[in-house]
């Protein structure tokens, strides 16, 4: 149990924006957050000051921005720890890859999920989204971002030994995230709870599978 806490503490220090990493850091930056806000800011410039159009499409834009922002940290998520031998040392201590990946997934979600949900508030103001829609967007992100974190960690584990992993992982995440996007952003137009429930269900299934898929991928990479 103390090992899990030590892992979580290290992961959060590495990934969370603002956490003190002891001078100079490895991965955790504000970049996904700023990227997300930049998209929300640029969209009104691109489509013009048509308030009803912005309000109608704004929720979908927030979803796409969230998905793309979640891709940014993927190349630093697992690969450095594999290269530097951390996974080997954990394996020798009987700490399974599955456990490490599960803890890393939680830290990854904490590093971008809640910050994006907070950043959605100013983004909603920029896009002129009303309160009821904002509520559905926020609930949708709460249900969907854990699924995005799970997809992200699976892809990060699969591309761990590839040299051009960063570019590839972005391409691989997008098709896998389509179901989350359909139900998550889809719940905006129907205004119903059904879409949110389905988003949450997909997320749960992905979260359950991710540690095992990720762990197996890292072990396979070690044999190479």
């Amino acid at each position: 149990m103390s090992a899990v806490l030590a892992l979580l503490k290290r992961d959060l220090a590495l990934l969370t924006p603002g956490a003190h990493g002891g001078g100079g850091r490895r991965g955790g930056t504000m970049l996904p957050l700023l990227f997300f806000l930049a998209v929300a800011m640029l969209y009104p410039f691109a489509v013009g000051p048509d308030a009803p159009l912005l309000a109608r499409t704004g929720g979908g834009v927030i979803w796409v921005a969230a998905l793309l922002a979640a891709i940014l940290p993927l190349d630093r998520l697992l690969a450095p720890d594999v290269e530097q031998g951390f996974f080997d040392q954990w394996a020798l201590r009987g700490i399974s890859e599955e456990l490490v990946v599960a803890v890393r997934m939680i830290a990854h979600w904490l590093s971008f999920g809640p910050p994006l949900m907070l950043a959605t508030l100013p983004a909603a103001a920029l896009l002129g989204i009303d309160g009821a829609t904002l509520r559905i967007v926020e609930l949708g992100l709460l249900a969907g971002t854990p699924g995005l974190a799970a997809i992200g960690i699976i892809i990060a584990a699969l591309t761990v030994s590839l040299r051009s992993g960063a570019a590839l992982s972005g391409l691989l995440v997008i098709p896998l995230a389509v179901p989350l996007l359909i139900f998550g952003a889809g719940s905006l137009s129907t205004g119903g709870e059904g879409g949110l429930a389905l988003t949450a269900a997909i997320s749960l299934a992905l979260i359950a599978a991710a540690p095992f898929a990720g762990g197996a991928a890292i072990r396979a990479a070690r044999e190479g």
Partner: peptide, 28 residues
């Protein structure tokens, strides 16, 4: 149990040495 020492120190590069070793002290 196996203890392995190879060409990699397996310590977080950005951390001061004391903190980087503290991580393993907690794990072990």
């Amino acid at each position: 149990a196996i203890g392995l020492l190879d060409e990699r120190p397996v310590l977080d590069e950005h951390l001061p040495l004391g903190k980087a070793l503290d991580f393993w002290s907690r794990i072990d």
